[in-house]
Design a protein around this nucleic acid. Structure first.
Lengths: 197, 197
DNA sequence: TAAGTCATGTAAAAAGTTACATGATTCT
DNA sequence: AGAATCATGTAACTTTTTACATGACTTA
């Protein structure tokens, strides 16, 4: 079982879904910390089925093409449960933009600044979007956000990570662009001024 | 050319290195945003050589096995320069721990809390380590940190991203563990108290 | 009627990880 | 003598991405 398999089980533990819907959900709902494609999902689902972790029933639709709606089995839920708390081998994030920053000294500072400005905006936009969702969740879901056995709590938890990530990333991009534009101090806005010449 | 290729060029732009040294550098110096293995580096180096982006000379050593020291060529430097500022297709980070948080509602809260505590500590430790390096850099490298054409500036920039990442991640883990332990409020320490029952 | 969304897959290529294989030299 | 580090690679496998292939139905 690979991580994608667990991701699919995790979504199916909330509600039965088709392969198509699963892929969309991953894009829309957990897009900031996981990604996949249709071509990966369908074989993965078939494998989960072989292992008895999911089952499906064909659902006929009049208005649109028929679909196969997959559900998690009791065995699947057991497997998922065990996985959540199992020790995790943390693989480092692959952040290409940070790699570029590490190489930025060879590049044209003006062009590089433009790149980091662009990403600053991108992450700022995502941040606003997530903040909107956060407010919505707190308003609509209220109490259940504090119950660790509620899927809403889990959604909120993941969102909070997205929030923090985008906030920090946007800030870093801004700092980077400022530096490349020859503007600011070495320290960040929040830091004490440094007494280095 | 894949991203690993650029990572290797980026390291070789700073100083000539052997495949072994390149792999160690990636582990030690850029480990928080990129990873690789010996088995990936050697073929990648051979490919870069075929493309004329790096060259090497055999260096005989008395005290340890001989090695092939690779240098970036002028063409390699051009390619690297262009890459740094090229538009970037941002692929989402794959954060398995966030995926687990998203599924945490199915798991035992006590066990889950332990997992997030463990990671809180892990990231807290990395944070202290990076803070130490930061202080060292600011003390030892001073002025050059503000010169975008200095490799020191780039090292510092990447480090700052690591700092922010670890800080945010540790904080999120702590919040998550607190929640699972039934402790805290829904809002973070920095947020206003929420008037949700 | 053309574009867009819903729906399910296969095939091939690229990237990354793990296992295997070898050998020198140093340190305990 | 055995473990650790330095040093270079190949082979197999897994994972991910991109391209290909098909088709129903809806909306502009």
């Amino acid at each position: 079982m690979n991580t994608l398999g667990y991701a699919l089980l995790g979504l199916l533990a909330r509600e039965p879904l088709s392969g198509y819907e699963l892929t969309s959900r991953i894009k829309e709902r957990v897009g900031f910390f996981w990604s996949t494609s249709y071509s990966q999902v369908y074989p993965a689902l078939a494998q989960l089925e072989d292992e008895g972790l999911v089952s499906y029933r064909a659902v006929e639709q009049r208005d649109r093409p028929d679909k196969k709606v997959h559900s998690i089995t009791p065995e699947g839920l057991d497997v998922l449960k065990a996985w959540v708390t199992a020790p995790i081998g943390s693989r480092p994030a692959r952040e290409e933009l940070v790699l570029r920053a590490y190489c930025a000294w060879v590049a044209d500072p003006v062009e590089a600044a433009a790149l980091f400005r662009e990403h600053e905006q991108l992450h700022e936009e995502r941040l606003s979007k997530y903040e909107g969702i956060q407010k919505w969740m707190e308003r609509e879901w209220g109490d259940s956000l504090r119950r660790p056995d509620s899927p809403r709590f889990s959604s909120y938890a993941a969102l909070r990570r997205g929030l923090g990530h985008e906030r920090e990333y946007a800030e870093w991009c801004r700092w980077m662009a400022d530096q490349l534009e020859g503007g600011g101090d070495v320290a960040g806005d929040d830091a004490q001024p440094l007494s280095l010449e």
